[in-house]
């Protein structure tokens, strides 16, 4: 039995190595002279080359920090929007009785499955009419309106697990619904809020399609769009700096994963996220 377990660990270790080797190799290669990227499949660094990072940082019209800052702004807006609007809707669905509840709940679940492509053309027309193209508003305002219904669903599931006696006790003490939401439910649903914040962070940080459509002015580029334009401008000799900036762009996602893996795993295990 111990041999079987040992074999399992060897097989799992090998799988991990094969799976993550390209990513590790990219990190290593970003520290090598550019031409070595195409010659050296191993992981040993003979001469360390930090220059890739300084070159990549300044390779585009703005220093890379500019794009990082733009991405951070979009992400921050999206997180705040999702936390506020989704938790409000979730509280109504999980705890309050109202006319049409089942109908609205069914609609909400359906919107989770809706492909963004069906909406993107008229949304683009609408946002360009109000002059929001090349601003972050088309990326942030929908989040303030709870359009990421996945998180509404996640929070509804979570609130349903909070004992109703707590609401009742607060009500008997004279709390209205707003106070119950703020004082009782919100503090107890911090894990669901954390899951939402981390998923929103990662998905918005990686999001490409809508940022590609709404941000065409290099001044407004976020990290994915900047990286994309970097690819188009890259000859084979600057792969080192391209890799370096790719690593920079992945680092926040990796950090979020390290900090929040507990919430992420729980979040998808209970709701079945992407």
């Amino acid at each position: 039995m111990t041999i079987r377990t040992a074999l399992k660990h060897v097989a799992l270790g090998a799988t991990i190595l094969i799976m993550l080797y390209p990513v590790i190799w990219m990190v290593v290669s970003s520290l090598r002279p550019g031409d070595e990227i195409f010659r050296e499949p191993g992981l040993l660094i003979t001469d360390l080359e930090i220059e890739n990072y300084t070159l990549g940082w300044n390779a585009l019209g703005h220093p890379f920090s500019h794009y990082l800052m733009n991405s951070a702004l979009v992400v921050l807006g999206a997180i705040v929007g999702n936390l506020v609007s989704c938790s409000m809707a979730a509280y109504a669905f999980a705890r309050l009785e109202f006319i049409g509840k089942k109908f609205w709940f069914a609609i909400m679940l359906m919107t989770i499955m809706l492909p963004i492509h069906v909406l993107i053309v008229p949304q683009y027309v609408m946002f360009s009419e109000v002059g929001w193209v090349n601003t972050f508003l088309p990326l942030v305002v929908p989040k303030l309106l709870a359009t990421d219904a996945f998180f509404v669903f996640l929070m509804v599931q979570f609130i349903r697990g909070i004992p109703r006696e707590l609401d009742e006790a607060a009500r008997i003490d004279g709390c209205g619904r707003a106070r119950i939401f703020l004082r009782v439910i919100l503090p107890l649903m911090v894990p669901a809020l954390a899951t939402t914040a981390i998923f929103t962070f990662i998905w918005t940080w990686n999001d490409f399609f809508s940022q590609l459509i709404y941000l065409t002015d290099p001044e407004m580029y976020t990290v994915p769009i900047a990286l994309r334009s970097f690819v188009d401008a890259t000859s084979s000799t600057s792969w080192g700096s391209l890799f370096a900036m790719s690593v920079v762009s992945l680092a926040p996602v990796f950090l979020a994963f390290l900090v929040g893996q507990r919430f992420l795993i729980k979040g998808i295990a209970t709701t079945g996220g992407k």
Binding site: M88, L96, E97, I99, L145, A146
Partner: peptide, 14 residues
């Protein structure tokens, strides 16, 4: 009912 629709307002507008 009113309270519920107030909580749902952002989602409904969206």
């Amino acid at each position: 009912n009113l309270a519920a629709y107030l909580f749902l307002a952002p989602w409904l507008v969206g």
